[in-house]
Simulated scan of single mutants.
Amino acid sequence: MTTSNLEVSEVRLLTFIVSEEEENIRLDKFLAQRINRISRTGLQKLIETENVKVSGEIVTKSSFPVQIDQEVELEIPNIPDETQLIPQEIPLDILYEDESVIVLNKQANLVVHPAAGNFDNTLVNGLLYYSNQFEKMKINVRPGIVHRLDKHTTGAMIVAKTPHAHMRLCEQFANREVSKEYFAICFGHFEEKSGLIETNIAHHPTKRHRMAVTKEGKESRTEYYVLKEYPLFTTLRLLLHTGRTHQIRVHLSHINHPILGDTTYGGRKSKFGGIDGVKSHFVNRLLKIMPNQALHSRQLGFHHPISNQWMEFIAPFPETIQNAVSILEKSSENPIFQEDWWE
């Protein structure tokens, strides 16, 4: 058995034949043994997004057992390898920095690291421009990245500046020792003023860019507390007990309270839940000032990777959320929704 040493950026299609000694092992493990430039997690994502064929048929389950003499084809998106990452001047709102970590307030419309469809102008490109410390960590396309926020989610994020800090912080996230608190504006009102949303989450069976509540997905838990109710909307404080992709957005949409502005999970419908007339006009006004989902990583707590001191940071709200809350506060004083009150 040989391992491919091709650069990821040079490859469009790789083909392997399953040997006798590889029979019945998982598909993701088989590919990980053959390719040393893509992590197993990365390979699993390629499998889930229909980039792998076995004997000519697309397979989307990483646990699929390969059989002797089967042909496995892997199509790799043209994602740059670490040597192609370029520094780019991107504004960084830094809340705290020392020799080991940076805590920043991520802006909306910023992808965290390069991936298919977003090869540059990411947070990683900005970090490389900001400090040559990250150049020393270019062992993959995610130097310093410990966790992610969605492209249009704003707020507190931590980045590691050294390999040791990266390892220690990753351990904390894996062991669920990090405190993550979010703020959201969502549609509707809640019968219970606090609660725990517990479901399994996996990729949507037909819409691969989305996640969904499923029976066979990974366990996920989101705790919520109602902060304030407004006409048509509620603001929430949310605590993450797991860190699944799109978790808060999926959970709130699942219980019929999508986040304001969330295009993917139903939060940009001005007539959501039977809203019409002047109320629909009011929602449209909110959507115009909220181009992305109203979800903000408000507070982040962790043990410093060197001193082990517990540290907490609060990320100020972006102007879009401040403006939306201001309009909601005004709406509380005008429950009749007069035609011109927001002018």
Rank of each mutant, 00 (worst) to 15 (best):
C186R: 05
A184V: 11
R221H: 10
R208K: 14
G243K: 08
T235H: 09
C186D: 04
R148I: 11
E229D: 13
R221E: 11
T245A: 05
Y225R: 15
L240M: 13
A156K: 02
K180T: 07
A174M: 10
I145D: 03
A212Y: 06
G188M: 02
K161R: 12
T235R: 08
L238S: 06
E229V: 00
N175Y: 01
I158Y: 02
I197C: 05
V146H: 03
E223R: 14
V159D: 08
L227Y: 09
P163S: 05
K215L: 13
E198V: 15
A212D: 13
Q172E: 04
T234M: 11
G144T: 04
H147I: 11
Y182K: 06
H152A: 12
V146F: 11
T245F: 03
L196P: 04
M167L: 14
T162D: 09
A212P: 14
G144K: 01
M157N: 08
F233W: 09
A160S: 07
F233G: 12
K193N: 13
L149S: 02
F187L: 06
T234G: 07
P143M: 01
V159Q: 07
R221G: 05
S194W: 00
E219H: 14
K193Q: 12
K193M: 04
M157C: 10
T234K: 01
Y230H: 09
V213Q: 07
T242H: 01
H152K: 09
G144N: 00
L169G: 08
E181H: 10
L196R: 12
R168V: 15
A184Y: 03
V146D: 06
T214P: 13
H204S: 07
M211F: 00
P231Y: 01
K161L: 07
Y230K: 06
L196T: 13
A156G: 04
E216H: 13
K207I: 14
R237S: 15
I158F: 08
V146I: 15
H152G: 10
E191F: 08
H203F: 10
R148K: 10
R176S: 07
G243V: 11
A156Q: 03
T199Q: 13
C170K: 12
E216N: 15
V146Q: 07
L196V: 15
E229G: 05
R244D: 02
G188H: 03
K215R: 12
L238D: 06
Y224L: 14
H152E: 14
V213P: 10
H209L: 15
T206Y: 09
I158P: 06
G188D: 02
G188Q: 08
L240N: 09
R237F: 07
V226P: 15
Y225G: 03
L239M: 12
V213W: 04
K180G: 09
T214R: 12
A174H: 08
F190E: 06
A202G: 15
G144Q: 03
R210E: 11
G217T: 04
T154P: 01
G144M: 02
R244I: 03
V178L: 06
M157T: 11
T214W: 04
L236V: 10
F173K: 05
H164N: 11
K180D: 07
A165G: 09
V226F: 05
T234W: 01
I201T: 00
T245D: 04
Q172Y: 00
T153M: 10
G243C: 10
G243N: 08
P163I: 03
T206C: 07
L236K: 01
H152Y: 06
T199N: 14
R208D: 02
H204M: 01
H204A: 01
F187A: 03
